[in-house]
Design a protein around this nucleic acid. Sequence first.
DNA 1: CCGATAACTGACTGATGGTCACTTAATGAT
DNA 2: ATCATTAAGTGACCATCAGTCAGTTATCGG
Lengths: 215, 215
Amino acid sequence: MAVARRARADWQKQERQREILLAAEALFIGAGGQLPSVAAVAARAGLAKGTVYLYFKTKEEVFLALLNWRLGEWLDAVTEVLEASKGPISVDRLVAGTADYLLNHPDTLRLASYGHSVLEQNIEAETVIGYKLAMVERLAELGAKTEGCLPGLVPGQASRLYLQSYAYAVGLWQMADPPEAVKALLQRDDLAMFRVDFETELKAGLTALWNALDN
Amino acid sequence: MAVARRARADWQKQERQREILLAAEALFIGAGGQLPSVAAVAARAGLAKGTVYLYFKTKEEVFLALLNWRLGEWLDAVTEVLEASKGPISVDRLVAGTADYLLNHPDTLRLASYGHSVLEQNIEAETVIGYKLAMVERLAELGAKTEGCLPGLVPGQASRLYLQSYAYAVGLWQMADPPEAVKALLQRDDLAMFRVDFETELKAGLTALWNALDN
DNA sequence: CCGATAACTGACTGATGGTCACTTAATGAT
DNA sequence: ATCATTAAGTGACCATCAGTCAGTTATCGG
């Protein structure tokens, strides 16, 4: 349902916020690696710049909210994989499920690589913590469910493994995905070392992490 | 030796460039996570803003050059560890040597976390490649030396392991080192999950990586 | 239909990356 | 010692953009 010209009710405000995030995401995908300007985001969402600042305190907050939204979807996807398996699940299936979302949403990873250095910089600490807390709850939930499906895990270990998986994926992505202009030049033979097959390395790394529980 | 008011000879230009990088680094360390402005860097180096642009094409190039300088030092440090051991070296010693430099230079890691998302964005592709190529040569050299000290490595594998070590360290750092304001709040019990002991996890991860050669 | 509320606007400000016409330190020839 | 030449260095200037706020007007209850 389209939002009225003015968002008065709460659900309308949420919808407007979502529209801003979608505009921001579309522009981020289109632009090569730079965070789009607030004016551009506002224009794309059919709003004036000032309006964006009614919904987010800074530009960085817009993109941190977007990142958190998508990371939430990632957890949803993993949850679904767990529920679909009904009962014990193999490490291979879990890893495949975990990796799939990331492989199909490269822009989320691209955004994630701004997380620490950019997005958390120009935001109230309270706001950052707010997002982290929400994620903790989701992670605890998913962790508990996971521990029910994978034997041999210490309580709390599954949540931690998801965090490590995320850290690993982000680090790996930064090696595997150079800026567009650089990518072309990387075809040269003497630069083969810097070409990384993201899918292969991601699955290998995640498998190693999750198999550590055998020790 | 202090540089003349005008750098004419090549060695003087190199020295001036070094002065700019040192100024940039000092300000980066002082400021909490933001890249300092070019005007500030210039002032700190005792130069006008325009002069910085005689030595670097963009602001990002300044910091990429700084990062590359420090990463070169890291390889130097590892090389020394290898040479000090004279002959075969244990994975534990190698990992300790690799981790030590990073643990003692947290600002290099902080800068490194800007690498992909920021530093490589506003720079000629050719320039980025230039830095990568130089690093490839250094890595090949160190890799060969390493393979001479560690049995069971496929040729070229050591270089790749160093790259993976770097990716892992950067990813881990981004989880372990939130912005200053957030760090204080992370003391709360319900956020324990987000506190990472960087040293422990780094050494554990690197050991796992380098022990993979046993398979 | 009207008055009150607050969502929305966009001109404005300050900060900053990058440029370039101009200044002047350094050098070598006389 | 003096001068002409070269290019290192300068900083006023421009364009862009994050963030603000006094003013506008859509929306709704009475």
